[in-house]
Design a protein around this nucleic acid. Structure first.
Lengths: 142, 142
DNA sequence: GGCCATGTTGACGTTAACGTAAAGGTTACC
DNA sequence: GGTAACCTTTACGTTAACGTCAACATGGCC
């Protein structure tokens, strides 16, 4: 294979601006054991695998996962190097997480229903509002 | 209408056990302006509307909403008593929240895909594992 | 060689969302 | 009338997830 295997490296600053987080955040994730970038001398250098992990972390955040939970997910992601019982434990955890996701899916649908209801009442209220001259002017573009 | 309009009252303890939270949590939500139960003397008394709000809060929590965000939702829920621009602002916020939900929906689907992949690799690893005598016994039911 | 951008390691500060403990007030029961 | 099971307020403690600031190193460039 040629070296064109897409093996690019990133500085912490690039990563930060790419994912719209601060460098402090990225270092904090490392402290918390979620990332472990290579080094050249003092400096951290990040690879694609680190980007994948960061993406997982941030996606988890948007779903309300704690960093500890995301770390589990990441640890599971990398090395399929366990014995039978470890692998089975992992499968059980995966099922748990699936269950959480199912619940969240449900919650989202219920939330959407709520929002629809509020929006409807909102529109109704707007419709019954006596529109003032000022409002009329705004609507017709002055 | 008869008094059978389902107007039941609840103590803080009932609410807590019904929703599986502590009384501290419920009082905290009140401090934070999310609930404002009636009182008889010193004691708080909760009604159906309070249950609805609490349900919204907890659902929000499962989706990673902050209490401040849930409070907004609740404030919106109750009084359609605004003027035109308030109502329009409300509608914009609803759209924002819908966008968040859409993103979360996407995140969930991506997460599920990840989980599928990990599970698959997990199963593969299990299949290629040399199963020991002990493992065989377990599988065949001793 | 000075400066600027970017990196590094501490270390302390902050916010949200409660937990926990203290001290006391009701009502119900035996 | 005591004690048990609730409720109340007040207040300090805790954890997660960073923010912020200081003090210093490093590489490029003019």
């Amino acid at each position: 294979m040629s070296p064109a295997t897409g093996t690019r490296y990133y500085t912490i600053g690039e990563l930060a601006s790419d994912f719209d987080v601060t460098t402090r955040t990225i270092r904090f994730y490392e402290e918390a054991g979620l990332l472990s970038p290579a080094r050249q001398g003092q400096q951290r250098i990040y690879q694609e695998s680190d980007r994948v992990k960061l993406k997982l972390i941030l996606r988890g955040k948007r779903l309300g996962f704690s960093l500890a939970e995301s770390r589990e997910l990441i640890e599971q992601y990398d090395p399929i190097s366990g014995n039978r019982s470890q692998l089975n434990a992992l499968l059980r955890k995966i099922e748990e997480r699936r269950e959480t996701l199912r619940q969240q899916m449900l919650d989202i649908q219920l939330m959407q229903t709520e929002l629809d209801a509020v929006a409807k009442r909102c529109h109704d209220a707007l419709a019954t509002l006596p529109d003032t001259q000022q409002e009329k002017r705004k609507l017709t573009g002055k």
